[in-house]
């Protein structure tokens, strides 16, 4: 199979996020980036499919801080080829990013009859919508999102899509197709740092030159801001033993102790 995984870097929300002075973007000074979580699952799903059916896994990303590490990590895990598009991801809305990636996949030979494009289902910052359906629309390919399992056979994929309340459903699509991956069938594999270092020494990252989008953001963003600390929670303070005592009182008040 010809498997593509699209990798996007997002700010790590464990760090404090601040809005820059223009009120339009995040203050980049203290931002730490990490791979968008569903993309890690998309990579795992691609590697599982390759192990079963053979083929190649190509990871594709726009330029972003720390993206090289992420691309080498993908190669160390079993990816075959890494492509970086030297257009900065920062400041691009989903529509513009989708336009760039659609141009990449429109190149002759990129999409073969046994191709699956595996973006993550959704990222935490996609104010303009998700890339996977936009890409599918641009390439006129079938799309299913919130996918949590993929089986392939005879030019078709049988996929599991999540609904709510633990309910899931099976769909069948003919390849080539775009699947927004929410989670892989198995937890993403771990790769030792030594293997990543080895990949950094032996492997290369290809680049694909493409025209930058002429309209980076589609929406008229008036401002970004932090939510007012509504402060509805009554904060319980003190050493762990004191906190525990007070929580036991709360539990007793709700008649569960």
């Amino acid at each position: 199979m010809n498997l593509y995984v699209l990798l996007k870097m997002v700010p790590d929300t464990v760090e404090e996020l601040n809005v820059s002075a223009d009120g339009q973007s995040l203050d980049s000074e203290f931002l730490r980036f990490k791979l968008s979580e569903p993309d890690d699952h998309a990579l795992e799903q691609a590697l599982l499919l390759k192990e079963k059916h053979g083929g190649t896994v190509t990871v594709v990303a726009l330029d972003a801080p720390e993206v090289d590490d992420v691309l080498f990590t993908a190669l160390a895990k079993g990816g075959d080829r890494a492509v970086k598009i030297p257009i900065a991801q920062a400041g691009l809305g989903t529509a513009a990013s989708a336009g760039v990636l659609a141009a990449f996949f429109a190149a002759p030979g990129a999409i073969t009859p046994d191709t699956l494009l595996l973006p993550g289902s959704q990222a935490i910052d996609d104010l303009e919508g998700e890339l996977a359906p936009l890409l599918a629309a641009a390439l006129n390919l079938p799309y299913v999102g919130v996918v949590c399992g993929v089986q392939a056979a005879d030019g078709k994929a049988t996929i599991l899509k999540e609904f709510a309340g633990g309910l899931r459903a099976e769909f069948e699509v003919a390849l080539p197709a775009v699947l927004g991956i929410q989670s892989a069938e198995k937890p993403p594999r771990y790769v030792p740092v030594a293997k990543v270092r080895a990949a950094m020494k032996s492997a290369t990252i290809d680049t694909a030159e493409l025209a930058p989008p002429d309209r980076p953001v589609q929406l008229d963003i008036a401002r970004l801001y932090k939510p007012e600390a509504a402060g509805r929670a009554e904060m319980v303070e003190g050493a762990p033993a004191d906190v525990a005592d007070k929580l036991v009182d709360v539990l007793a008040k709700h008649s569960v102790v």
Binding site: T13, I124, A222, L224, Y225, P227
Partner: peptide, 15 residues
């Protein structure tokens, strides 16, 4: 809109 897992809000105007 609520972005970044609820840590940031954004106001968008629709013409």
């Amino acid at each position: 809109s609520q972005l970044f897992g609820g840590k940031i809000l954004s106001d968008v105007k629709l013409a």
